[in-house]
């Protein structure tokens, strides 16, 4: 990937700012998402809560399903490849979608390496729990970052933890005297180049969305007030009682995240949200955020 191409890929993510990216599993859902004002859809066979419930190995979705969704909407389409599975990524690039999510929601294909994203023309978004993880993914060529959160739980606590951690570590890195930057970067596992960039920008050098457990307009506004650039909503919409209404409400809450009256209005009469899961009840081996490094 040339520097110019990487720049264009980062810039597409900039155009998604202030928006909501929604998980959809069929054409009908994709259209509901687009009409509700989603800035992009994530095409996948099973939303994370179903993957969690059904277990087994979760792989890239069937290409014909992704293609059908791509043909049904005018907004950008994303799809997930397994961590380290560069051939799944090659197939998604060949399908001509707009963005690949190298995602911990699927079962990792490699427990040592993530995909070399510089080898691709298509942009990648990757999950991260902290600054080091975010900057390692950026070093590999990710053009957009999202918090991992804990997908499919309807519980925002992990997304909050990951965003808070990133924000805290960015503040720390910025406030360090120059001689302490090298040991800090060494301990957190990232390069001096990227450390310098974060110190001068006071933020990640790419767009950073919240993901993993967002289920209500208030969850979405919470993440925006913490400084995210936008949100991904997975199971939270199409596992709720009234998906179209909830999708519209979350879009409104993200656009007006600093206006409690408007977030309140958006929160009225939405019906039941998706059922939630207490993180402590999930065995550690089944926590998706622990996948990737």
């Amino acid at each position: 990937m040339s520097d110019d191409r990487y720049q264009l890929n980062v810039q597409l993510a900039q155009m998604l700012k202030g928006g909501v990216i929604m998980d959809v599993t069929n054409v009908e859902q994709a259209k509901i998402a687009e009409e509700a004002g989603a800035v992009s859809v994530m095409a996948l066979e099973r939303v994370p809560s179903e993957i969690r419930a059904q277990g087994g190995v979760a792989r890239m979705s069937a290409p014909e399903m992704i293609q059908a969704i791509k043909e049904s909407v005018s907004i950008p389409v994303m799809a997930k490849a397994r961590i380290g599975h560069w051939v799944e990524a090659q197939l998604l690039e060949a399908l001509g979608i707009d963005y690949i999510d190298e995602s911990e929601v699927l079962t990792p294909a490699d427990e040592e390496c993530h995909i070399d994203k510089h080898a691709f023309k298509i942009p990648f978004v990757c999950g991260a729990r902290n600054l080091g993880e975010a900057l390692r993914r950026i070093a590999e060529g990710a053009a957009m970052i999202r918090t991992k959160g804990e997908a499919g739980t309807g519980n925002v606590v992990e997304a909050v933890r990951h965003m808070r951690t990133m924000n805290r570590e960015i503040r720390e890195l910025q406030s360090l005297p120059a001689e302490e930057v090298v040991p800090y970067a060494k301990n957190h596992g990232f390069s001096m180049d990227l450390a310098a960039k974060v110190r001068s920008l006071g933020r990640l050098p790419v767009v950073n969305f919240a993901a993993g457990g967002i289920a209500t307009p208030a969850d979405a506004a919470l993440m925006m007030q913490m400084g995210c650039d936008g949100v991904f909503v997975g199971s939270g919409i199409f596992k709720s009682a009234d998906p179209a209404r909830r999708a519209r409400a979350i879009v409104e809450a993200v656009a007006n995240f600093n206006d409690p009256q408007k977030v309140l209005a958006a929160s009225m009469n939405l019906g039941e949200p998706m059922p939630g899961i207490e993180i402590g009840t999930i065995p550690e081996t089944q926590r998706m955020a622990e996948r990737g490094w």
């Binding site: 998604l16 687009e34 009409e35 004002g37 800035v39 907004i75 950008p76 879009v251 656009a255 007006n256």
Partner: peptide
């Protein structure tokens, strides 16, 4: 600005 026109259009009406 640039963004998604379908999203912006809906929010222009709504707000």
């Amino acid at each position: 600005p640039g963004g998604e026109s379908t999203c912006l259009s809906r929010l222009l009406r709504l707000t």
